[in-house]
Amino acid sequence: MTSIKTIRHKKNTSGYAMLELLFYISLFVFLSVVVVNSMITMTRALKETAIERDLAEGREIMEKISRAIRQAESINALSGSSLELNTKDESGADQTLKFSLLSSDIQFLANDILVGNLNSADIEITSLNFSQVVAQKSEAVRVALTVHSSEDASPRSADFYDTVVLRGGY
């Protein structure tokens, strides 16, 4: 009888170990799924954040263009994606500032000399449009800018619009 009890007891211990193993495996699988899923989410989040940060660069470009328009005295030339303004430099001397879309970059020229691109290599300018708005007592320029992140494989872009009255034109 004793030997039978021992055998039964051994069988019970073996069954419990199997149950424990199953539990550990299930837990491992569950945790693996959660961790992998989380890694995918975090990778996507990092990429999304980088793309949104690139697109937000449009704000700085638009800020530079609108500041130049605001301080300008008159429009020298305007044609679609190119704008040339008559303004004055720090010493009060006449100068021209020009913004022009070339390929996917906005070139900034002072007195017809290239200063550089307004956008970094991280973004592409997919559209830049200038329109002249004339009122009885003033004139303004409407700017429509569309930017796209170079890191983004999708066609997603961000649009920025502004209209600025030439303060020097009053």
């Binding site: 949104e52 704000r59 609108s66 502004d162 209209t163």
Partner: peptide, 24 residues
């Protein structure tokens, strides 16, 4: 932050439109 930046320019444009309409 991106939407906020876009909205800020639209706000500024709204103010400039009021100025232009006044100037007309």
């Amino acid at each position: 932050a991106l939407r906020g930046a876009q909205a800020a320019f639209l706000l500024e444009e709204g103010a400039e439109v009021a100025r232009l309409v006044r100037d007309e």
